[in-house]
Structure formats: C-alpha cells, structure tokens
Design a protein around this nucleic acid. Structure first.
Lengths: 132, 132
DNA sequence: TTCAAATACTACTTTTTGGTAGTAATTAAA
DNA sequence: TTTAATTACTACCAAAAAGTAGTATTTGAA
C-alpha cells in the first residue's frame, strides 16, 4: 500500500499492543513477533512514547503498552511517521492554505476529503476487534 | 498528504494535460507552470509515455498530451510511481496473499478496501472538471 | 539539407529514509 | 546493593528516492 515502511511498522505495533492490552510487551518480543528490526523498532517506540501515543515502563521487566483512553487514527500515525509529507493539500507540499490556494486546491477537495476521512475514521486500536 | 513527491508531481502533470486537451504541452512549460524540476519532470514523462498513459510527440514542436480514451486512476499512478510499495496488503510488504495471510490480513480488510476504493474510483483526468 | 527545439537515454550527485552499533540510564528482583 | 534486563540516547552506515548534467536522437520548418 501507499504507507511508508515506518508507518506500516507503526500500524503493526499498535495492533499488537492492542491485542495485549493487559500486559506489557517488550521490544525484543515485538521485534521477533512482528518481524521488525530490533534497533529500528526501539527508535520508533521512543518516538511514540514521546508523543504520548503509548506508555513505556523502563528498567528490568519494563516494556510498552497502549494508553487505553486514547484514540489513535491512521492520520495521527501519518503525521508522526511521515512528517511534512502528511500536509493538508494533496497537491502542493508546503505553500498552500485557504488564503493562498494552489491551482488545483478546490478541484482536489472532494477526492482528498474522501481519502482523509478514511484515515481520520480508522481508529487503529479498534480495527482488530472481532465485533461487527 | 501520503503521496510521494513523484506521485504528487504525476497528479499535477495529468491535471494540467487534462486542462489542455486540445494542444500539446511541452516539458519546459510543464516544469515552469507546475514548479517541477525540468530534468526530473522529463524523466517522469518518459516513464508515463512508456506505460502508455500519455502520448509524446518527439522533435521540434513536440510535446505531450493525454490519450483521451484512457481512464487513469490514482491507483494506476501509485503502481507506476511507487512500485513495490503499492502492494495489496496494508501491513505486510511482500509475502502476503490469500493462501498465506499475514496475521492482520483479515482485520485490515475493511479500512484497506475503503481507502483503495477511493484510489480506484478517482479518475485523475476527470477530477478537475467543473461538472457536479 | 541544415538547424533549432523538442523528447529519450545514460550516468552521476544529493537528500531522505531505513537500518545498525555502542553506550548510558533505569528498574526491580535476588 | 549488586546485577541483569530493559528502555533511551547518540552517532553512524546503507539503500532508496529525488534531483542534476550531458549527450544522443527525433522532427519540422526555413
């Protein structure tokens, strides 16, 4: 799919943590189970933790777990993992806002909104649930 | 947005060509009007041409134009510009098909389909039209 | 038939992303 | 209070994507 490798890793990780809501998951296990390079994974985890998307417990017997109260959408992950690329306008990268629209701003509005809605509406923590 | 720089360029280019259906648009003009590096643009154009998404006229007074009979979706562009990343499963990169599903294959089916549908349904050549 | 302006091709450079290595800091159990 | 297992930090390396340079080929008009 369109998602960057980092974003795909993030989606996997959050899904896994969601399946293990009760306990902690440590980096070693996540790396093995999800087939993500250990060192790269810990880097991602630290970023998540700093952005308060997950909680980390340091030291021996430590690990990671979801913050249960939080809803995390695909859009949130894109913003975190892909940085500048997750800008608002589908066409222009930087210099495009309501005041100074790019040439195709309005024309793209509809398909753009449709795609964005999917991203905004997909609660990553919920997608794995068996309901519905 | 999520799209790679190359994909964003591609979307711009096709939109421009669609506005100039009658005549030819040459690389110099496209580069200037759409703010895409000239050399990088010509590289993309050649790729498009080879994949028969647009038609090129070589030599002096040459240029590019859309092949009017063809429908081009965002999905088509993703496949062309992002190559392997535009694979089917949202989670696994390579080794995931109906026979050997990845762990989250089914769970992701719904949000995945929803996003993909948008891509498949967005005819790039049409999006700029004033109708509707 | 020459020439200027266009696309096509080949190779290289720069920037960004993905991945690795080593060490420091933290923590709870023994 | 020591120690082993964990996360956090810093710096580097490799691969991929984006961008550049130079040349060859094509073409229609003068």
């Amino acid at each position: 799919m369109v998602f960057s490798t980092t974003t795909q890793y993030a989606l996997k990780i959050l899904a896994y943590l969601n399946e293990n809501k009760e306990g902690l998951s440590n980096a070693k296990t996540l790396s093995r189970e999800l087939d993500i390079p250990y060192k790269y994974l810990t880097k991602i985890m630290t970023k998540f933790t700093k952005n308060e998307m997950i909680e980390s417990i340091q030291g021996r017997y430590g690990g990671f777990k979801l913050i249960n109260s939080k809803i995390i959408t695909i859009y949130d992950i894109l913003k975190l993992c892909d940085g500048d690329r997750a800008k608002d306008c589908i066409i222009e990268k930087i210099e495009c806002d309501e005041k100074k629209k790019c040439h195709y701003h309005d024309a793209w509005q509809k398909p753009k909104e449709s795609i964005k809605k999917d991203f905004l509406n997909t609660n990553v923590k919920g997608f794995i649930s068996k309901e519905s």
